[in-house]
């Protein structure tokens, strides 16, 4: 799940203050689950902007819409007809969704309404925590199911470092030391000896990454 946090209203105002035709676009994907950028939030932001424009005596037309997912071209196509009326779009999707809109509508100024922060999980209601950085080389099968790339402040391959104390990371007492978790789990699984093996440097490779699934491409070309 991609986790984002809303930008402040002041920042959004600063970004759109010189425009007269504004659209707020929610996304029905990840950000809806987190109650950050779905239909409800798009309607709320649009209402606030209308109120602000009225108070400022500005003649601004604010529309809102929510796409099933902003990261899929077919859903983005669904707003083609309306897009001609907009000067600026505030996307409440993650950074992926924002860029899909910007690529599809080069003549419209596309602005992010949220800051995308990580791929993570719901630990408890209202508490989300980063779990994956999409590094392209998953090793959690060898680290007890915990990812040191995403969850160690130094992304250590041969941890824990000297700053692990009482199960906490030196960077923040609120953060568990993932290498302590790895150690405990590996011992519990009877795999402790694997931690004595030196892990080689990681292949950080080239970004941006892309993935091709040939069988799906063939299906597409037949259509």
């Amino acid at each position: 799940m991609i986790v984002a946090r809303p930008k402040s209203f002041e920042e959004i105002i600063r970004l759109i203050q010189n425009y007269k035709k504004v659209a707020v676009l929610g996304c029905g994907g990840c950000v809806t689950v987190r109650s950050i950028g779905g239909q409800k939030q798009a309607e709320e932001l649009a209402s606030l902007l209308r109120l602000w424009a009225k108070r400022q005596g500005k003649d601004v037309v604010v529309t809102e819409a929510t796409l099933t997912r902003q990261c899929e071209p077919e859903f983005v196509e669904s707003i083609n007809d309306r897009a001609n009326d907009w000067e600026v779009v505030i996307s409440l999707a993650c950074g992926v969704g924002v860029q899909c809109l910007a690529e599809r509508f080069p003549r419209i100024k596309v602005l992010p309404g949220v800051d995308t922060i990580f791929m993570g999980a719901t630990i408890e209601p209202g508490l989300y925590w980063e779990r994956c950085v999409g590094c392209g080389e998953c090793i959690v099968g060898e680290t007890g199911g915990f990812c040191p790339v995403a969850r160690c402040a130094k992304s250590l391959m041969n941890g824990p470092c000297g700053g692990s104390q009482g199960g906490r990371c030196e960077v923040s007492p609120d953060t568990p030391c993932v290498w302590q978790l790895i150690y405990e789990r590996m011992e519990q699984l009877g795999m402790g000896e694997e931690l004595d093996v030196i892990r080689p440097p990681k292949d950080w490779s080239v970004r941006p990454q892309r993935m091709i699934m040939e069988h799906l491409r063939k299906v597409d070309s037949r259509q």
């Binding site: 824990p160 470092c161 150690y183 405990e184």
Partner: peptide, 16 residues
């Protein structure tokens, strides 16, 4: 750091 945790792993990490 002999005083870091997990203590049982410190000498093992030294060996590494």
């Amino acid at each position: 750091n002999p005083f870091a945790d997990p203590f049982p792993f410190r000498a093992r990490r030294l060996a590494k």
